[in-house]
Design a protein around this nucleic acid. Structure first.
Lengths: 361, 361
DNA sequence: TTGTAAGCGTTATCAT
DNA sequence: ATGATAACGCTTACAA
């Protein structure tokens, strides 16, 4: 007779008994137990085969693989995540997908994330109240995330960092404990504005865009004012506030142009600029003869518009891709010191800023 | 001495002993156990409070909530998914995000999915080999998914359906066991082509687009040929193959137009059409005087191009939103019979198809 | 109203 | 090379 201490440990999986009999039900996928039973091995061996862990005999391996494909077994992702303590997924948070900018950024991001074996969750905040909760919820599903400007406040980001979540911010000022990726907004604004003032000789400017809402815009505003000051041109006291949207651009431009039209109108993005062109033409102003207009982003429409829109081309896809790479490094634990990077942009001269000698459209 | 059968069940959670002492480590979030201990209740009660399940005394509830916020506790998503047997997430699979079409669809989708309390995973296939594996991997992370055309074969979709995964296809022919959502491609192609033949009197046509690659395109081709036949206009034997891209459109149009230019060129989307306009102008053909060109999608660039591009406007966002709704119904188990829906489109007449009496741009 | 503990489906440690 | 089983962190039936 055995003493209590000699009694074999009761199996933790008492409930496993009677597991059979629920096969074939649609929507109920098989588990590692069914595969193990079918193959006549333990679940540990099945797990080894699935994960490619070394140390499984070739014929055992074959047998398991056959059962796997017979039963069309797919491991449960939640169980795996729970056991591994990771999600093999990352997230990206942006304000909205409308307009090509965010779509391109996300595309660049997804591509790299997929290459590094990570699924991608997206979240748009739409400037909604619940943004904080949604972002925190997302944080529970991923191993790290990228957050774009104009989504949630720095307090939320600090919370994420304090939870130990790898974080990269994009098109947003750096925050403690996170990497950042930005386009060269100030430099390109400076170059663009200098081109307008120096090369075309424009002496009266306005800036259309909401500098308070976006770090991109406020950087562009800063480069704009700096260039004007350096060129000895009067500097407007503030940007003309305007959301990132074509209709808003048209409306804001209409109000501005009726009143006291400047000679050159620097818009915070192409959508605003295209709206402004429409407004200018409706008011009988010729672009660029009466009014120069420029944008940002180099959308397809900028190339096809009449007149062609002078703008700044941003490496949108590269921004997303770089953010994905930096996030991957952080998640993999390859690096801890924050890294802040600025990607170069390019001035694209077309007809809307004034006539160029070598103009071709 | 007790018989074996009388031995009390060994607790499943032997390892819980000694759980304390690992607090404060960054990146290691607290669990329901810490909260329970802090609040002086059991984990079941914490769970009830977190889930809002009825039957918790107000003061107990308060105490728990305080501990939750003290410890900044967020439930583990994988553990929750494992226990609940659901992910509270859904996925959307598309070929690529470039161009505004997919971005808009995804945006409409995400918005509705978020409203129904579901996170959104995205997957782009890029026409890659690994598409099947990626899609199956995604399937393990979601409660249901939407698959767009030109991503994976019907065999993969059948596999998903047989696994019991709720499925909606978008811009793709219906498959057994899944809902489908499409735009009225054939009808709008018919209307567009009839407009060109009847209203503008064009008698020689070509169609630019790869009908084999996309159900959208093959439906458009069908409506196109039907309209020509009904108008008594010679029907081309086949589409001029061309990918969905501006450069490809330009290249394909160049080859076509040098040879034997038709009077009207119907393109499968706006990007192709805009490329074709560029090609036509490079060859000295005037649009629409020498050659009418039309597109599909009504991109921003179609509105701003010179000449304005006649095109078909699709409810892209609504397509995504509807797919999300249908998927939600399926996931919730509200409905089992497949539903196939076709959303209306709209012909947008601009200058590129010929001169209209009431033309305004 | 609250607690106990089984169960979710994996991974990985430790024996053998 | 393989098996037994603890552990992952929750939800929920059942008991009290």
């Amino acid at each position: 007779m055995k003493a209590l201490t000699e009694i074999p440990q009761a199996p933790g999986r008492i409930g496993r008994i009677g597991r059979a009999g629920r096969t074939g039900r649609a929507g109920r996928s098989d588990t590692i137990y069914e595969v193990a039973q079918q193959a006549g091995v333990s679940i540990a061996t099945v797990s080894r085969v699935m994960r490619g862990t070394a140390g499984v005999a070739p014929d055992t391996r074959e047998r398991v693989l056959r059962s796997v494909s017979d039963l069309r077994y797919t491991p449960s992702r939640s169980a795996r995540s729970l056991a591994e303590g990771r999600h093999a997924a990352s997230g990206i948070v942006f304000p909205d997908l409308s307009g090509p900018y965010f779509a391109e950024v996300v595309l660049g991001y997804e591509e790299v994330a997929a290459e590094t074996g990570r699924s991608v969750l997206i979240l748009t905040t739409h400037g909604r109240e619940a943004a904080r909760e949604r972002v925190l919820d997302l944080a529970a599903r991923v191993d790290g995330m990228v957050v774009l400007g104009r989504t949630v406040g720095d307090d939320v980001l600090a919370e994420l960092v304090s939870k130990g979540l790898p974080l990269v911010v994009l098109a947003r000022y750096p925050v403690e404990g996170a990497d950042s990726v930005n386009a060269a907004n100030e430099a390109s604004a400076y170059a663009l504005t200098t081109h307008l003032a120096r090369d075309h000789g424009h002496r009266s400017f306005a800036f259309l865009g909401d500098a308070g809402a976006s770090t991109d815009t406020s950087d562009r505003w800063r480069g704009f004012t700096q260039a004007l000051a350096d060129c000895g041109v009067p500097v407007p006291s503030a940007p003309v506030p305007c959301p990132f949207d074509e209709d808003d651009g048209r409306a804001a431009a209409e109000r501005l142009l009726v009143d006291r039209p400047p000679r050159a109108l620097v818009c915070a993005n192409d959508e605003i600029a295209l709206g402004a062109i429409t407004a200018a033409e409706a008011l009988g102003l010729r672009v660029p003869d009466d009014l120069a207009i420029t944008g940002w982003d180099d959308l397809m429409a900028a190339r096809h518009s009449r007149p062609g829109l002078t703008t700044v081309s941003q490496p949108m896809r590269a921004l997303g891709a770089l953010a994905a790479h930096r996030l991957h490094e952080r998640v993999a634990g390859d690096r801890n010191e924050p890294r802040h990077e600025v990607l170069p942009t390019q001035l694209v001269q077309r007809a809307s800023c004034g006539h160029h000698p070598e103009e071709n459209r």
